[in-house]
């Protein structure tokens, strides 16, 4: 379980996150939606222990988040993460050496699934292949928490489809808590259980995806648009 208690992150006078109170329950898949600059990546980095709150605290399974949280959190970063000079195999070996929960068996399966060639230098991979490699590295971990920050960034629709199938096949539903930030709502909707709209560092709305569909007959994208329209009108 991930808890954010009154979390604020300030850069000078600018608030990237403003008094966020959120709980992400164990075994559920969450989507964090919102425009650029809404604080999605800041929230993910904070849960990954890469940023520290100016105010409030972030807890994962009751433990205050710091740099050591990486042992319980598998984090897919929107930038960086892979070293251009290393091959796919060397990246996999490096991750296996750093995270005790890294499953080589799962990694081998994912190599086949993601259609990656292990001898290739990561610098020579296309953007789509790099995206798939990042996902492979994160999904090969059997960590209680998965944080996927913009997993579809710069990927074409075919690759996005592979990524979603990868998520469905390799996430341990019910056990792993998964948070995904994305603009590609339609693609990710089938995987989500709950969605949160973040805007200007604040939680604008929250919904249960299934209830939304069954009770209000709305997709997450429609709900997002409606919420924004209401926000503008009010």
């Amino acid at each position: 379980m991930i808890e954010m208690r009154n979390v604020t992150k300030k850069y000078g006078k600018r608030k990237a996150l403003d008094s966020i109170d959120l709980i992400f329950e164990k075994g559920k898949v969450y989507g964090i939606l919102g425009p650029n600059g809404s604080g999605k990546s800041t929230m993910m980095k904070m849960a990954a222990g890469l940023l520290f709150p100016t105010k409030g605290e972030v807890l994962i399974n009751g433990q205050k988040v710091n740099r050591h949280i990486a042992k319980d959190v598998a984090y897919l970063a929107s930038e960086g993460m892979i070293y251009p000079g290393l091959t796919v195999r060397q990246m996999i070996d490096f991750f296996a050496s750093q995270y005790p929960d890294f499953s080589m068996e799962k990694a081998e399966e994912l190599i086949q699934f993601m259609n990656l060639e292990t001898h290739q230098k990561t610098a020579k991979l296309s953007k789509g292949q790099q995206g798939r490699l990042k996902l492979l590295l994160v999904l090969s971990r059997e960590a209680p928490v998965l944080l996927l920050d913009e997993p579809f960034l710069g990927l074409d629709p075919m690759v996005r489809d592979t990524v979603v199938k990868g998520l469905v096949s390799f996430i341990d539903f019910g056990e792993q808590t998964v948070i995904i930030t994305t603009h590609e709502i339609t693609e990710i909707e089938p995987v989500l259980e709950e969605a949160v709209i973040l805007d200007e560092g604040q939680v604008r709305a929250r919904c249960h995806v299934e209830a939304l569909r069954e009770e209000e007959g709305m997709s997450v994208l429609q709900w997002l648009k409606t919420t924004y329209k209401e926000g503008i009108n009010s």
């Binding site: 990954a48 222990g49 890469l50 740099r67 970063a77 930038e79 960086g80 995270y99």
Partner: peptide
Amino acid sequence: GHYWLHST
């Protein structure tokens, strides 16, 4: 990206 800081 400073991903190295997300480390055990």
